[in-house]
Amino acid sequence: GSANAKTLKIETHFTASSPNGEVAAQFAKNVEMFSGGSLKVEMFYSSSVTGKSAEVFNSAQTGIIDCDMTGAGYQTGKNAAFQFAGDVMGGYDNPYQQYDFLKFPGAQDAVDALYNKYGMTLIGWWIPGHESLISSKPIPDVPSIKDFKFRSPPGMESMIFSALGAKPIVMDFGEVPTALQTGLIDGADYSSLATNYAGGHYEKNRYATYPGFHSMPADHLACNTKVWKKLKPHERGAMKAGIEIAGRTITSLVERKNAEAVKALLADGVTLHDWSREDRLKFRNAALNAWQEWKKKSPEAAALIDIHTAYMKANGIL
């Protein structure tokens, strides 16, 4: 009964009023419903408890909260392998492949080995989809990004783009809007087309890549393992089902929002670059080189990269 219902404290980096925030709120409701009311979720938005999205995982590890609903990409400083539980850069063509990857033999075990090492358990992913580059100059293909000065998220992406001749600039997220206005940077890797459009970044910067190809960060739901093990089987089922639905919802929702943004942006005269198959392949090859570098960083990274590669071969992506 709900008198002795357990409440999980879950923290996300998304804001309550964003589409992702609304999906997270629906997730909380679903978990309560699916568990027959025995499990409740108290959702904290905008990393408001911990104060910094990269630290939310730690808060769950320490037990300040129960589950982390940010993304594995923030944790690559702990272990390079988290890159491949977050943004499999240059890897998948769409979120559905990455959802399916977890069902591939050995994948779940490799991911579990990584998370369990830090006292955490991955419950599932929810993936909004590919991001789009914003630019003040045309970037229709690989040669055009030579000397492209753009704000790049730290880590593997800077590595890949450097290899292709771009000049990634390390810059705090909060400085990007002004930098895009003043022309300090030519462009930025910011977010999805729809979010960038909502943020008003195309008024000065009239070019974008769409459909995206370079980065597809997965958001995860990861719980403190001790807390997770204490849940009853049906409660775990409710969480698993909840995140699965959140995943399908956010992926389709972002697709629709992007499609709306495409219409508005085209009407506004913004140029959208759809990279050719050859150029996408060039990008993927640069990424695969970076993966080889990444494999040296930790045994968990090597294991995960091998399984991703095996899956991509089985699936015909490679």
């Binding site: 730690n58 320490t62 944790q75 400083g77 702990k78 730290p154 880590g155 800077s158 590595m159 390390v170």
Partner: peptide, 18 residues
């Protein structure tokens, strides 16, 4: 506990320079 864990694992900043 958190500080000890970060120190022992030599936790980095998750960036290119790291």
């Amino acid at each position: 506990e958190d500080a000890y864990r970060s120190f022992i694992n030599w936790e980095r900043f998750a960036t290119f320079w790291d």
